[in-house]
Amino acid sequence: MTTTSDPSSPQIISDADTDAAQSSSEGFSQFASQVIERPRPDGVATDATPTVTFRDFSVFYGDFEAVKSVNAGVANREVTAIIGPSGCGKSTLLNAINRMTDLIPGCHTKGQCIYDGDDVYGPQTDVVWLRRRIGMVFQKPNPFPKSIYDNVAYGPRLHAGTSGSELDQIVENALRGAALWDEVKDRLHTNAMGMSGGQQQRLCIARALSIEPDLVLFDEPTSALDPQSTARIEDLIAELRGKYTIAIVTHNMQQAARISDYTMFMYEGELVEFSRTAELFTTPEHERTQRYVTGRFG
């Protein structure tokens, strides 16, 4: 799980390398060429504890085991993508991290999900405090039906009681961080619902960033957007990497290849493979992974 190579600059893995690594003669993953290797972020040690660790972690909807005994982790300040076909449990796994699965009646878990040293499902956990430290961006953009300013200001107002010019500054920083400031700085107090889908999603990202989370979860953030907005948000996530730990669920393998450092491949609730993105796309260990990333199914 630790990086074996440590390039000083990003490099594109060429087709030639991938060719040689193929074990099967059924072709190679076209996404492998999209993988971008990025340097380890500053200040993160090689054997640093991952932000989130799953230990035999299972999630049940009633009797149905949606996530089967996952053992994996989300690396500090890097991007971890979770890919897999529909219904494989990747969204469930993501939602379980900040206990959004608690909102679903009949949902319970087994095993451990460790965040910041504590078991998320332990008896001592304050769910509200947990969710405050973990930001979430949903598939369909869901800004509050308030003004742009109030959307971003909601978190700081709620948790820290910030107001006045300090709040203005926080809002501006968050909107800049989400690459939205220039577009909305003149209309901060207009209704957020009046923006385009892509802008709304960036607003949701700004909202999540406004309270300086350690971990940001993206649940298929671009699947409801057009390609241009998708590209902008992917660039944004690449920028956020290094400052925030990011876990992103996506069924867009190009996206996973482009922006993530680690990839988890899930199938029918099981974690099939978990490794660095470059390796998963070029030299996957399991045949199922191979078949998925070459587009044979899913």
Binding site: L103, R131, R132, G135, N142, G155, R207, I211
Partner: peptide
Amino acid sequence: RAGHAMGA
């Protein structure tokens, strides 16, 4: 859900 995720 957005409200919950924000820690309300």
